[in-house]
Design a protein around this nucleic acid. Structure first.
Lengths: 418, 418
DNA sequence: AAAATAAATCTACACCCTAAATATACTCCG
DNA sequence: CGGAGTATATTTAGGGTGTAGATTTATTTT
């Protein structure tokens, strides 16, 4: 029996640990000199330079010949010009896939998270307001794969390897990338992407879409001075899902179903996990059936094509029925926030998804309710600034986290050696 | 300006890391030989022996002269007898304090968690069923400190230093060991223990009692073969509190208030965070006021001194009113479990506290309801086997975790050197 | 052209780990 | 009682990695 792995603690682990630290520093700053890396890492110049040489060799860093030409902020004029290094952002790429119910988007980004290209397809649907008749699992698989390949073809990767891919799906995802098979919707939303896409990138992970939004919001600007380590990212549209970021850590649970909102069935004044868009339409149609007061703007609309934005517009125009719907939705949202704030002790609930654009008044009003609340655990409520890209931004971030985490085990583009 | 700390990555970090690994191994096994440590750590014999010598020198390990005499399970007869080492359990002690509403218990344990001694005091109360008239904060502080000192005096520590102390309190605890000042009960339950006890041990931490139960249950026997990484420890008595262990990690939240149960105010069919003991008494008194069917065992009791165990006994004796109360409590518990299972995706809810002993039928019946539920996220429900010591066991474990984590930075008893 | 400055390079030197050879302490068996 | 056998301990050599400090190099300033 031969020794397969090197002993766990050979001296190289030190070199490795130092390389890791320097690379992490490179990742969070722009071009840097050895002296700066020394300050950041606490290492000696010899060590830093040795490590940087290694990293350049491996392709993670570029050496930027001239020190003074690039002239950073600090007036740097005296002495021997320093060698400068920078993360080689194009050493590799990652792919983010937002595989939503209605469309699949694939985005390619470099190591700094800059988008290099993307591709997108609508999922063919029969009825616009129903999710039930979506394309089947096999069609989704085909579309997902082709969209990923289109996105890669659409950008000039310069032959950079695809080190990681993260796929966001509207379903709980367990540690193996699978979703519960006992739910047809979840099974359809995640039709075995992990296996399907395994060969498309070095590391392939599937992740719940709301969890990715939570990751995306990790870097969002902080309201006041204090840091926000605990928050809930709520993805609200036709349905409700949430990602729980607590103590700077994503809470997943056994099957990855933490943050699922079905528990709202048991919450007074809520009663279901339906999303605000769905309810706005439904309640509007209900009101139309029961008869509207004359002159209501809602009366102009066709119940079959009515959208949630129509309700928002009617409310803004002063329609009392639409206004009542907005109020009810706001109270609903506020109550959900109270429950989450209480059980999880989060500072903030961040709403993303279609609701942000189509029903902003609901968020504003719910935030006002929470501000007025005497409950000391009431969290702040804010709308995400990331728009439709929230899932994609989170997926890029997550894929990059994976790459950063294992960078030294992965081989980026082999450097052209003279 | 002189250099105060050694550079972050001096060669010694390797030695340190290896020492850490060997010490961790020593902690989770009994006496061991160098060869066993080599297998466990992947290190060379020279390294292991070198590290063990260091650890013996520092007082963390004892060298157990004879290898064969102790004769472990494996028939070990051939070859040169191996040197044996073992964790020196008496090198230091930790103190666990269960500072509950009604009594304060301090327990001293060695590095293996074996109890060496303890002390306990009842908190003077005026009315047995009310928490409001407890001794004030200053009295609690005095009692806590004297109980800790009594416990230390009660055991023969052999001069071992007190490396860590964990205090469990029925209140949320933030990272600094403080509890929300805006709640009189919480402020009373944690009247500045962190500062008060700071000098009694090397590391002093305050922790929520339910969180400590969650830690205590980390090692509890697993129901089936699968591992349970996500569960809720519910401390149920007069009130309800819970510790959230999700993905093998305690979820605390910003102020340490994650797991607080006030959100139950918003849950249908629950409506408050009152504990089962409190409700059992209250509902029984209500029923007595409304008039009981003749011959009910409940009728024998004085409403002013009635205890929850009386209700349990009456129900066991077939009293329909008491049985109804047990059923209502079971439904309540089951519903709480469903909500927790759904939002947090936990495998299991473990009930500890007075309810386990006094109202076992509630837990059994709720477990049956959950088993019969068609909700796939319904968690298992079990009663804790730790009894009244759950908080203490968790506090010992937590204190030991802290010691294990920083062992090499701490100095245990200086070894007697010849 | 010389001084000043900052960075790179070079030269010890210490430490820690591995690997391999050698020594030791047993048991077993003839 | 004295080898053979076996498992462990100790010693020695060698390589890699780090720090520390002196020296060299590249550049600006005077």
């Amino acid at each position: 029996m031969e020794k397969t792995t090197a002993a766990a603690s050979s001296p190289q682990v030190l070199r490795r640990a130092n390389a890791r630290r320097v690379l992490e520093y490179a990742w969070r700053t722009g071009p840097f000199t050895a002296s700066e890396a020394m300050d950041a890492s606490g290492l000696t110049r010899s060590t830093v330079i040795g490590v940087c040489d290694d990293l350049v060799q491996q392709g993670w860093l570029d050496e930027l010949g001239d020190a003074r030409a690039a002239g950073a902020a600090g007036a740097y004029t005296k002495g021997r010009p320093a060698r400068r290094y920078a993360l080689r952002a194009r050493a590799a790429v990652v792919v983010a896939v937002d595989a939503g119910a209605e469309r699949i988007t694939a985005t390619v980004a470099d190591l700094r998270g800059h988008v290099l290209g993307s591709a997108s397809v609508e999922i063919p649907v029969k009825s616009p307001h129903r999710v039930e008749r979506r394309a089947d699992a096999e069609a989704r698989r085909r579309l997902a794969r082709s969209t990923v390949r289109d996105a890669l073809a659409a950008c000039d990767g310069g032959g950079a390897p695809v080190l990681a891919m993260t796929v966001g799906v509207p379903a709980p995802v367990d540690a193996d990338g699978g979703s519960p098979a006992d739910d047809w919707f979840w099974a359809l939303m995640n039709p075995g992407y992990a296996e399907l896409l395994a060969d498309e990138a070095g590391i392939v992970t599937i992740e719940n879409d709301a969890n990715l939004v939570a990751i995306a919001e990790r870097r969002s600007p902080l309201g006041s001075g204090r840091t926000v380590d605990s928050y809930v990212a709520m993805l609200a549209g036709e349905g409700l899902g949430s990602g729980l970021m607590i103590d700077r850590r994503l809470v997943r649970g056994r099957r990855g179903a933490a943050g699922e909102m079905r528990f709202l069935d048991h919450v007074e004044g809520v009663g279901s996990a339906d999303g605000f868009a769905l309810l706005a339409r439904q309640w509007a149609v209900d009101a139309m059936r029961e008869g509207l007061p004359s002159g209501s703007p809602l009366d102009q609309l066709d119940p079959r094509t009515l959208g949630e934005a129509d309700v928002a517009r009617a409310a803004a125009a002063g329609d009392p029925v639409a206004g009542g719907i907005i109020d009810r939705l706001a109270e609903r949202l506020a109550r959900i926030c109270l429950v989450l704030g209480d059980l999880l002790d989060v500072d903030r609930v961040i709403v993303a998804g279609a609701t942000v654009a189509s029903l902003p008044a609901v968020i504003d009003r719910a935030a006002a309710i929470l501000d007025a609340s005497d409950d000391p655990t009431a969290p702040d409520l804010v709308a995400s600034a990331l728009g439709r890209d929230a899932v994609t931004v989170g997926a890029i971030e997550h894929a990059l986290d994976l790459v950063r985490d294992r960078a030294l085990d992965l081989v980026p583009a082999a450097r052209d050696v003279a």
